[in-house]
């Protein structure tokens, strides 16, 4: 089980800023998104536009073993500035 950080609209939809998820390994952006969507189907539309950060770095196709992962976050489209 992994703690996954949620932000902005995604945190608002679920009502929490962190969730514990069972994520299929090896861990990739796709398996993280799939894990959230399985538990919270209402996030599907937002998830389509989200990025995934592992250890505070954006990742896409990279594969991680569970013990390489210290922090996972789902990043909705950013809108700073």
């Amino acid at each position: 089980m992994f703690n996954v950080k949620l932000f902005a609209i995604l945190a608002e939809q679920i009502g929490r800023s962190e969730v514990e998820l069972s994520i299929a390994t090896p861990i990739t952006a796709a398996t993280v998104k799939a894990a959230l969507q399985a538990q919270f189907p209402q996030t599907a539309a937002v998830l389509a536009d989200c990025l995934v950060a592992i250890n505070q770095t954006f990742v896409s196709e990279e594969h991680f073993a569970p013990d390489e992962v210290s922090e996972i976050a789902l990043i909705p489209p950013v809108s700073g500035g």
């Binding site: 932000f7 902005a8 609209i9 608002e12 539309a45 937002v46 536009d49 950060a53 976050a73 990043i75 909705p76 489209p77 950013v78 809108s79 700073g80 500035g81």
Partner: peptide, 23 residues
């Protein structure tokens, strides 16, 4: 950069601005 804007507009609340509204 992972920063987000929640915009309080007179018609409604928007995540991001009117030109990049998120679902």
């Amino acid at each position: 950069v992972p920063i987000w804007k929640k915009e309080y507009d007179t018609d409604k609340i928007r995540w991001g601005g009117p030109n990049d509204v998120q679902r």
